[in-house]
Design a protein around this nucleic acid. Sequence first.
DNA 1: AGTTTGACTGGAG
DNA 2: CCTCCAGCCAAAC
Length: 117
Amino acid sequence: MKDHFVKMDIEQAQMFQHDVLSIVKAIPSGRVTTYGYIATLAGYPSHARMVGRILRYAPEAISLPCHRVVNAVGRTAPGWGQQRILLEGEGVMFKPNGHVDMKQFLWNPESMIDKEQ
DNA sequence: AGTTTGACTGGAG
DNA sequence: CCTCCAGCCAAAC
């Protein structure tokens, strides 16, 4: 059974973008999440790249904490050195290889430990 | 209308 | 842990 769309029309693209932005807005300080996870929550698991494009180019994204979005292995966005500074400023720590310690700082909306924050 | 380009991902070596 | 690669898909050429 297909539980998600593969291609989207104009209207679906608008809803997708809106959902992506509101999800990013919900990431708590001191935590990170991934492009793929946001895409999945928004109903399009195969559109991680589009999440990246939205955060990079959508005007509304500048007022959101998009520095809390990293890729699946915890790497920060290419060409955006400030992202690491912003994350470290709210307590997120990086491993020696320059990746976010996902084990410790990945946002888990479902888990008990996160509900306490 | 065909090709290239990414703020991506998972797997192989 | 790293680099390379195929698959991905809307946008820009």
